[in-house]
């Protein structure tokens, strides 16, 4: 793959602002204690990767960041999660407003059964981001360009989004999420349903998105984490075992569990 990207991509993460500040987060699914005492600061304009074996809680934690767990009746969240200093689990917070600022892309591409244009325009429309058609057109184009999809679909915006290839569908979903102008973009294994070429395209895109957003990506592929992220968090059995610069995690893990996982002994 494009190995050029892998090297010399170190950025000075210390200079970034903190976007999400999580303290002592606990998540329960009914009786099950799914996330135990996780504290982590996610940086702005940075790609953070969550890695760990399946069932370790990385996706659960990700879904807490835009309160998607609210849609599951039995999930309970304790602790503090501050977005720009405001607790997103405060009683006064409307998840609808929160999710406009914290977008999400899912494991399987899930374009709506509408036209490509309507898929991207969906968010701006419900949030009232455009004053007229021209503005909406512009938002759509910008989002599609941002998702590196514009050139492929600009002549068939009226066609249905489900007719695209898998990689195109996933980039459409990213464009859809980007169109609402969020500050944080959550990605739950966005490439696991894609072939290697589409994966490479999406990974390249993620790297570009970093300029505008804070990106949090859950991945089961360590190589992917190493390729796209600046910060990496390793989860194991609901605990956040280690969090630090990606290069450090992969080259000098401090915790033996991290090392076992990196070297492929557990997972």
């Amino acid at each position: 793959m494009d190995d050029v990207r892998m090297v010399e991509r170190v950025v000075d993460t210390d200079a970034r602002d903190i976007k999400f500040q999580c303290k002592d987060v606990q998540v329960f699914y009914g009786e099950k204690h799914a996330i135990k005492d996780v504290s982590v600061d996610l940086l702005d304009k940075t790609v953070t990767a969550f890695i760990g074996p399946s069932g370790c809680g990385k996706s659960t934690f990700l879904r807490c960041l835009n309160r998607m767990n609210d849609t599951i009746g039995i999930a309970r969240v304790q602790g503090r999660m501050l977005l720009d200093g405001e607790d997103i689990y405060d009683r006064r917070v409307d998840p609808v407003q929160l999710r406009a600022r914290v977008g999400m892309v899912f494991q399987k591409p899930n374009p709506f059964p509408k036209s490509i244009y309507d898929n991207v325009a969906y968010g701006p429309r419900i949030h009232g981001l455009a004053r007229n058609r021209a503005e909406l057109d512009e938002i759509v184009e910008k989002a599609l360009r941002g998702a590196a999809l514009w050139n492929e679909v600009k002549d068939r915006l009226g066609e249905t989004g489900t007719g695209l290839s898998g990689g195109q569908q996933q980039r459409l979903c990213i464009a859809r999420a980007v169109a609402t102008a969020p500050e944080v973009l959550l990605m739950d294994e966005p490439c696991s349903a894609l072939d290697p070429i589409a994966t490479a395209q999406v990974e390249e895109l993620i790297d570009e998105l970093r300029a505008t957003f804070s990106v949090v990506i859950v991945t089961h592929s360590m190589q992917q984490a190493a390729r796209v992220s600046q910060k990496t968090a390793f989860f194991h059995l609901g605990n956040l075992v280690e969090y630090g610069d990606t290069d450090d995690i992969f080259t000098r893990p401090r915790d033996p569990r991290t090392e076992s996982y990196i070297s492929g002994r557990i997972g």
């Binding site: 998607m68 849609t71 609808v96 999400m104 899930n110 374009p111 709506f112 509408k114 968010g123």
Partner: peptide, 24 residues
């Protein structure tokens, strides 16, 4: 997944139903 996709963009439950679930 369609409902999740819509909710994750910050649409309300009824917007999700009217604009995504029912058309589908």
């Amino acid at each position: 997944s369609l409902r999740d996709g819509s909710l994750a963009m910050g649409s309300t439950h009824s917007e999700t139903i009217r604009q995504v679930v029912l058309p589908a």
